[in-house]
Nucleic acid binder design. Structure first.
Lengths: 226, 226
DNA sequence: GTGACTTTGTGCGTCTGTTCACAAAGGCTT
DNA sequence: AAGCCTTTGTGAACAGACGCACAAAGTCAC
């Protein structure tokens, strides 16, 4: 389930505050979900709390970590060392959760050789070597959109079966390869959509109103991509 | 719908390639969704294509942009200018889609005054002024986890009703305020989960096997937060 | 002008995920 | 030791999304 990491974070926060036991109600509130859903998730996961008391925090942390595969280390390569790649390389949340960054790669000769967050940027030509040598199992793609599919094909061919994609394209991959996508501008657009809704619908116009330019004579292009 | 931005991106890509008309089947493939779902989304949105031909690309771009509220400009403030905040400030996808960054703010005196991507970083004390002066309607929170809720409360009090949160906490906000969350390490954890599934279940153990340490004597802590 | 072909728009069955509500289970107090 | 109280685990109703499949509608060729 996609909610387990959220539970895990809430639990580790409780753990740091020295809380030993927690009810489904409290934990659900901390994670921002319904308590019945949380209980069903946890029971579906096999672990149990004790009725009348709640869940033991440490035990649950261990169970969820194991379920998520965080008891073993995962080796990550970051491809594309632009602004975003740099931020990812310096992101503390990786190392502290069992993700080891084995390499930073880029195609730009001006960037290759630079030291970023204690690592030397390698040339993209060495991609296959680095994946094989370090046993990389997760690739993070932070390249420009145009390069993403090509890089993706190469990492998949080299045996990587999990890809985290920050490039604004839909990657096509063979069966058995997982892709997750994070797109900053899409998140903003969704917020803009809701914001507009609050302000009273799209410009207050019904779609295809009398007087709107009909399809076929369209000049609306300049309104979207400034 | 959360899929409209994906359609829009696929459409603008087609537009740049000079494609005038597209069928639901083609567009669905480009967006990575089922064609019936795409047609239902588009019809639900009110706009139509012409049967036997498909959708006119330009007209659809205009309609979706209008629905998403991209025909107007949205003013954004980025709070927290660490690695991630810097990457966001330099991200080209904002300006090109009608999102104008009105301010970069941070609490660290060493960062305030620096110029990042052509903007001078302001002190967090000026938060309310900047929101009011520029008419900020979307706040991007890229602070450390501990500061996020406090910053969120302040931007909401200042009238912001949409928040994009990169901090690894669940923000609590009053009714009517939208929060979207992007969490890099959660994405990686979900990938790790699937990766482990491919490799044959969580360590190959059934939960709470005979011989496992029972709850109450737990020493598993060191396995999770290294 | 007519017929064949293409593609949209949508009714309907299905399925997954969510929530309610309650019985079973365990602890705590007296 | 007995009963009360809290909290889990889950059956069942509910809701929304999804996708198939087909009829309506329009185009294109001749």
């Amino acid at each position: 389930m996609a909610r387990l990491p959220v539970y895990l974070r809430a639990l580790t926060a409780l753990q740091e505050r020295g809380v030993a036991t927690v009810s489904s109600e409290e934990l659900a509130a901390a994670a921002g979900v319904n308590s019945a859903k949380l209980r069903k998730d946890l029971s579906h996961l096999g672990s149990y709390g004790t009725r009348g008391v709640g869940y033991e925090v440490e035990y649950l942390v261990y169970q969820i970590s194991r379920e998520l595969g965080l008891t073993q280390d995962w080796v990550v390569a970051i491809i594309g060392v632009g602004n975003l790649g740099r931020a990812l390389a310096g992101y503390g949340g990786f190392a502290s959760r069992g993700f080891r960054v084995a390499g930073l790669l880029d195609a730009d000769e001006a960037i290759v050789g630079q030291e970023i967050s204690g690592m030397v940027v390698e040339h993209i030509d060495r991609l296959e070597d680095i994946i094989a040598d370090h046993g990389v199992s997760i690739a993070v793609i932070a390249t420009p959109a145009g390069a993403a599919q090509g890089v993706c094909d190469r990492v998949v061919a080299a045996g990587v079966t999990s890809v985290l994609n920050f490039a604004p394209v839909v990657l096509s991959v063979p069966e058995g390869v997982d892709v997750r996508k994070v797109d900053l501008s899409i998140e903003l657009q969704i917020l803009a959509f809701h914001e507009q809704r609050k302000a009273g619908g799209p410009d207050g116009l019904a779609p295809l109103q009398e007087g709107d330019p009909p399809p076929g004579t369209s000049q609306y292009v300049e309104t979207v991509e400034a």
